[in-house]
């Protein structure tokens, strides 16, 4: 076989770098949506590569629900310092205080849906014309239809039935005043690709992804971490378990799995044997068959 071909990880990396450079070239004011999860960390790492030896030429933006894992916030602040880039924070608490959104009530109340308003407000106030996300098409069925360059109308909404066709490697980011784009450089990566790459590049990720002892409660088929936001039912009981998280969202909705995987090597091994999808532990997706599609239409990540 000729030596002039790339392996799959190098090809995915090159594709993502290409997309990130296109975003920079086609938009005035892009940001990376940074949640502190492994996918946005990966996108940030790829952006570092794409513009080297320059710094990442745009800010990171975090939509802060206030329901964070403390580890995530520390990780975010460390990475900002290391990269020397600006951080923009959109605060869900502020949106609540300003009466822009109302808090959900009840046992399974979360701030997941409230983020949409905060995100769209932050995009508008900061005049952002492209928000780069770590969404992947293998994550969820509505995301399988997502473009690399995905148009949002002036209400921030996604119209999945009327998307611009995307051909070859030619990306059309043209838009009118008030509209914006979402760009997804790692669209073609699977969960396994992400872990294999993180392992290969030795990218640092929050300790929450590694097996650790934590107080948890069994709810909706996964281990929900104890926190000041957790309201216990009568029959529920807090126990100590050795767990890790496969995805990171709000502390209120992210369920952990029992695991002993405490190195990247062991995590990659464990993920390759997984029989359930990673979002299977996310209660935000379990609300209905089209929970993700409905949120995405309104402007969700």
């Amino acid at each position: 076989m000729s030596k002039y071909y790339l392996n799959y990880l190098d090809e995915l990396e090159s594709e993502a770098i290409f997309i990130l450079r296109e975003v920079w070239a086609q938009f005035q004011n892009p940001v990376i949506l940074f949640s502190g999860g492994k996918d946005s960390i990966l996108v940030t790492h790829l952006a570092k590569k794409a513009f080297y030896p320059s710094k990442i030429p745009f800010p990171l933006m975090h939509v802060d629900t206030g329901h964070n894992f403390p580890e995530t916030i520390k990780f975010r602040d460390d990475i900002i310092r290391e990269l020397g880039v600006e951080l923009i924070v959109g605060s869900v608490q502020e949106s609540i205080d300003q009466g822009r959104v109302a808090e959900e009530r009840g046992k399974n109340a979360t701030r997941n849906a409230l983020q949409i308003t905060t995100l769209l407000d932050a995009i508008e106030t900061n005049k952002i014309d492209c928000a780069i996300g770590g969404g992947r098409r293998d994550e969820e069925k509505a995301r399988a239809k997502e473009r690399f360059f995905s148009h949002r109308d002036d209400f921030g909404q996604w119209d999945p039935k009327n998307q611009r066709p995307e051909l070859w490697n030619i990306f059309n980011g043209k838009h009118f005043q008030g509209e914006h784009f979402r760009a997804f450089p790692i669209s073609n990566w699977t969960e396994m690709d992400v872990w294999n790459y993180i392992k290969r590049e030795n990218i640092s990720i929050p300790s929450l992804y590694f097996a650790h002892e934590r107080e948890v409660v069994w709810r909706q088929d996964s281990w929900i971490p104890n926190s000041e936001f957790l309201i216990l039912e009568d029959h529920e009981e807090i126990v100590m378990k050795r767990i890790r998280f496969r995805t990171l969202g709000d502390i209120t909705i992210t369920g952990g799995i029992e695991s002993d995987a405490d190195t990247l090597e062991k995590i990659a091994q464990e993920v390759s044997g997984m029989r359930k999808t990673e979002r299977g532990n996310r209660s935000d997706d379990k609300r209905s068959e089209s929970a993700m599609e409905d949120r995405k239409r309104q402007g969700y990540f």
């Binding site: 399988a144 039935k161 998307q163």
Partner: peptide, 17 residues
């Protein structure tokens, strides 16, 4: 993928697997 596709039993747009 999309809700309309499930309801109507058709595929509307290119989907990636």
């Amino acid at each position: 993928g999309l809700r309309d596709e499930r309801e109507q039993g058709i595929t509307i747009d290119v989907a990636y697997r």
